[in-house]
């Protein structure tokens, strides 16, 4: 099968429109995941050990099962209980929950990466807990969390093709539809690959730059 440029340009507008949907899905999913991650991290640091244990196990469960199965679970099970979820809603919920568990680990690692002496010094200076977090701990935890946070943004972006399986009209879904309409799969699928490459490579490079910039602003030299 020969590559056809006229066909490529014919489907390009639809592919670009779908790229917008893919980016939107990744963006919304990431925002939800950032918040869910925070909740799950705090849920493991409560004074009640039983709560910490349960949240920990839930996080472990979600982390060690496939996103694809979770996607189908949410999409098909909610209607069984009378909740009508659109493909978009179930997709955003699942992505938010799945990557929220990963981000909770990133947050946890970052907080633990701040030396204990920092806490003790704040105690000695009679700072309140809120003030300690805001002015001392979080500014130091942020650069530690940044690489992980960035990686999962790119990770969510690369997992968005899974959303096609439940009918979210993103890139992969559009490529499938175009293939079914025209019986040409070579161009749509190859274009999806290249669009992903064009977006994720600069994104990864930009993240590395950002990390270096933050490390520099914090007065630390990156190794």
């Amino acid at each position: 099968m020969e590559w056809r440029w006229d066909f490529t340009f014919e489907i390009l507008p639809r592919m670009l429109w779908a790229t917008g949907n893919t980016l939107l899905a990744a963006g919304i999913g990431y925002l939800i995941a950032l918040v869910v991650g925070l909740i799950l991290m705090l849920g493991q640091r409560t004074p009640y050990r039983i709560v910490n244990f349960i949240v920990r196990e839930v996080v472990e469960f979600i982390r060690s099962t496939p996103l694809l199965v979770q996607l189908f679970f949410v999409f098909f099970v909610a209607p069984q209980f009378g909740i009508k979820l659109t493909a978009w809603t179930s997709a955003m919920l699942t992505i938010g929950l799945h990557f929220g568990t990963y981000l909770s680990e990133v947050y946890r690692g970052a907080l633990e990466g701040v030396p204990k002496a920092q806490w003790e010094a704040c105690r000695a200076l009679n700072f309140s807990t809120a003030y300690t977090y805001r002015r001392v701990v979080l500014p130091q935890a942020f650069p530690i969390a940044l690489p992980g946070m960035g990686n999962y943004l790119v990770g969510i972006f690369k997992d968005t093709p899974l959303l096609a399986t439940i009918g979210v009209a993103e890139l992969m879904h559009t490529a499938n539809a175009l293939g079914a309409e025209t019986y040409r799969y070579l161009e749509p699928y190859t274009m999806v690959g290249f669009i992903f490459l064009i977006i994720s490579l600069p994104a990864a490079m930009g993240l590395r730059r950002l990390e270096a910039a933050v490390a520099k602003a914090q007065g630390k030299v990156k190794h």
């Binding site: 490529a175 293939g179 699928y189 490459l197």
Partner: peptide
């Protein structure tokens, strides 16, 4: 490495399964 890390697994899977036979 950059190619396979930069594109999505599902895209690679579909490409190998649906596009390679065309070649």
């Amino acid at each position: 490495i950059e190619f396979f890390r930069g594109t999505s697994l599902l895209v690679q899977l579909y490409w190998i399964y649906y596009v390679l036979p065309l070649m």
